[in-house]
């Protein structure tokens, strides 16, 4: 049990206040057998170099703050056990969004795409005095896409997004899906129209990177396919 893990951490560093170019920081750390990548990053920040900068909050894969590229794949640093990626661990910011500093990227373009798909419940009919009824089956229909934590692991691993930043991206489609398939919602047609635009769902080439990256194990490509199908079969 008491074994320790020797880790060689390589972190892509960049502080625009000081650096002309990104550079690789290399750190040797000894960590516990159940520690996560986030623990190693904290160790560096707290005991070796306080300027190392990253976002994190919940520490257990729920808040979506700490998406980063770990050994070349998008992951939440708090959900990856070091022993699964040891001994050399390479950490970079997620791709396709401007780097603010070290592992922190500008989330604003991502959030703007999210906001563009009407990611909110719409039903202007006067509500009943109690809850709107919905059968367990109707509820199940969109269950998968309610799990999204807006971490951006999917969108920033998508080749179509890398090629064209205007592509609305898988996360926004997941969010739209959550409402399009909610039996209580009335704005599916409007959302489908938005996703039918040139930078909407049709930019997806079904490469599955997004699905593999999702820490919530959402079947993203399937959700996108359902949206495409809804577009094909609903005459807008």
């Amino acid at each position: 049990m008491a074994e320790t893990l020797k880790i060689e951490l390589r972190i892509k560093r960049f502080n625009p206040e000081k650096d002309e170019e990104p550079w690789w920081g290399e750190y040797e750390v000894e960590m516990g057998p159940t520690d996560r990548v986030l623990d190693a990053l904290h160790y560096v920040k707290w005991h070796i170099d306080g300027t190392l900068t990253l976002r994190r909050s919940c520490g257990h894969g729920i808040c979506g703050s700490d998406a980063m590229r770990i050994n070349g794949v998008n992951r939440l640093a708090c959900k990856v056990l070091l022993r699964d990626v040891a001994p050399v661990v390479t950490v970079e910011p997620i791709l396709g969004l401007p780097v603010i500093k070290d592992l922190v990227v500008d989330m604003e373009p991502f959030m703007a795409q999210y906001r563009s798909v009407m990611p909110y419940f719409v039903n202007d009919e006067p509500p009943p005095p109690r809850e709107r009824l919905q059968s367990p089956e109707e509820r199940e229909r969109f269950d998968d896409t309610t799990k999204c934590i807006l971490c951006a692991c999917c969108t920033t691993s998508c080749p179509s997004f890398w090629a064209r930043g205007e592509y609305v991206g898988p996360a926004a489609i997941v969010q739209a899906h959550r409402f399009i398939f909610d039996s209580r919602d009335k704005a599916a047609a409007q959302r489908l129209e938005i996703l039918n635009e040139p930078d909407g769902v049709w930019r997806c080439r079904t490469v599955y990177n997004c699905t593999n990256a999702c820490p919530r194990e959402i079947k993203i490509t399937e959700a996108i396919a359902e949206v495409k199908k809804a577009l094909l079969f609903s005459r807008l």
Binding site: R130, E131, S135, E138, D143, D182
Partner: peptide
């Protein structure tokens, strides 16, 4: 809680469709 449901909150459902 009813207001949250009206805002679209996806509660789990009973067989009759209630929260």
């Amino acid at each position: 809680v009813i207001e949250l449901e009206h805002m679209g909150l996806p509660f789990d459902r009973t067989p009759e469709g209630k929260i």
